[in-house]
Simulated scan of single mutants.
Amino acid sequence: MTQPAPQAPAQTAEAPAEGKPQVVAFVDQQFPQADADGDGSLSPTEFEPWIKALKTAELQSSGGTVDEAEVTTYASNAFATADADGNKLVSKDELTQFLQG
């Protein structure tokens, strides 16, 4: 079954990093869907398809061209960046921090 592409949270330039409730709400809604094994963290095999769908939706909504190779590279780099503690897993807190950055 194909899941609908995640929708990016609306962000405003004046919202402080700790005060982005839309990002927190987005992560609260999306994280359980991405966490296929329900272990409370995202492995690369869970994170990368999810972030690729998010990036593809973002590009399509802005009228940009979707280059699969670039989206794949973005997903791999995004995982490395989001995995702040380097344990090869992305926690809900790490994902929130990544999306707020």
Rank of each mutant, 00 (worst) to 15 (best):
S76D: 11
Q22F: 13
F98W: 06
A13K: 11
T12Y: 11
Q100D: 03
E48H: 03
I51F: 08
L89K: 12
P21R: 15
L89A: 10
P32L: 11
Q22R: 15
S62Y: 05
K52D: 08
P49F: 07
D35R: 01
S76I: 02
D37Q: 11
V66Q: 06
V90I: 03
G38Y: 07
A69F: 05
E48S: 08
P16M: 09
D39E: 09
F31Q: 09
T12K: 14
G38K: 08
P44G: 04
P44R: 09
A57I: 04
S91W: 00
Q30K: 12
Q97P: 00
G64M: 08
K88Y: 01
G101W: 04
D39M: 08
Q30L: 14
L89Y: 07
L95T: 03
A69N: 09
D83T: 02
D28T: 12
A10T: 13
Q11R: 15
F31I: 11
G63V: 09
Q29R: 15
E18R: 12
A53L: 05
A17Q: 13
T12M: 12
G19P: 01
Q7H: 13
L89S: 14
E68F: 02
A10Q: 14
N87F: 00
K55G: 05
Q3N: 14
A75G: 03
Q100V: 05
P9W: 12
P16D: 15
T12F: 12
V71L: 05
Q100K: 15
T96I: 06
D85S: 00
D28V: 07
D67Y: 00
T2I: 11
E68A: 13
Y74A: 02
T72Q: 10
G101F: 05
Q3M: 14
F31K: 09
P44Q: 04
L99E: 03
D35H: 04
Q97N: 13
N87G: 00
Q22V: 13
T12V: 11
V23L: 10
A10M: 10
Q11V: 15
V27A: 09
Y74D: 06
Q29C: 08
P4H: 09
S62C: 03
S76H: 08
S91E: 01
S62E: 14
A82P: 04
V27R: 09
S61K: 14
F79W: 01
A80P: 02
T65Y: 00
A84G: 04
L54P: 04
A84L: 08
V66E: 00
P16E: 15
A82F: 05
E18C: 13
E14F: 14
E46C: 04
A10R: 12
P4D: 14
G63R: 06
E18K: 12
D37P: 06
A15Y: 08
E14L: 14
A36W: 02
D93R: 04
Q100Y: 02
V27F: 10
P9G: 13
E14S: 13
V24G: 10
E58S: 12
A10V: 13
P21N: 14
Q97A: 15
E70T: 01
I51K: 01
V23R: 10
A75I: 07
S91G: 05
T65I: 05
E18M: 14
D37F: 07
V66D: 03
W50C: 05
T12L: 11
F79L: 02
G19V: 10
A34S: 09
Y74Q: 04
V66F: 01
S62W: 07
E18P: 08
A84H: 02
A53W: 05
G38T: 06
S61W: 04
L95R: 02
V23S: 10
F31E: 10
E58L: 09
S62D: 08
V23I: 15
S62V: 01
